[in-house]
Amino acid sequence: MAWLLTGQALADALQVKVAEPYVEIHTGPGRGYPVFHVVERHAPLTLIRERAGWVQVHTPRGRTGWVPRDALALTLDGTGQAPVMEDGLKRFNGGQWQLSVLMGELEGARSLSAAAGYQFTDNLLAEVMFSQASGPYANNRLLDINVQHQLFPQWRVSPYVMLGTGKIHIEPRATLVQPDNRDERLVHVGGGVRIGLSRGFVLRAEYRNYVLFTQEDDNRNLEEWKLGFAVLF
């Protein structure tokens, strides 16, 4: 009776039909989990949730297990076509949020950055980044907004250029003689490369050149290298 009740509860659930001779159901979301059940051709699968590239399904015989998302391509939906899968590369483009964490080096100081960005078009992304750089002489905190332009967004390895502005807070180490904390405005240019590693996951490396508008006569130049990850959703 269980499968009937569940079937009713999931009446408006997502269902597909197996189109291959059979689909193997694993006990967990990973390639190593044992196959404990098999669903034959034409039998329906109810799709419950997707996690880390695996889909939890409910079978007509009342079992619940996991299939790799690739297995969905071997099924048919109610219209007789395979479900529309999200293309890995396509997820790197257009209308989505991006969270990044990067590590780097800012003029001899180790820097750590966190950023949130929004992709407006295939090419254009706006981002707010907070960085902290702890060096032997000072603690620096940077907050900047930047615009990134991807030159070839359809490529898996995609170069970009950026332009931004922001503020830096410089806090000299207390062990030095009587320095003052300073706030300076800055602009920066930079470039980098994004490498799509897997669905919604990008490796990101970039170079930035900052110009600080100091209160002294001369502007200061700072260089920074960064390497990190971005998650897209």
């Binding site: 997502l14 269902q15 597909v16 039909k17 799709l47 939906d77 109610g78 219209t79 479900p83």
Partner: peptide
């Protein structure tokens, strides 16, 4: 096999 006739997107 009579499942709802609709297009399914991942």
């Amino acid at each position: 096999p009579r499942i709802e006739r609709r297009r399914i997107h991942e």
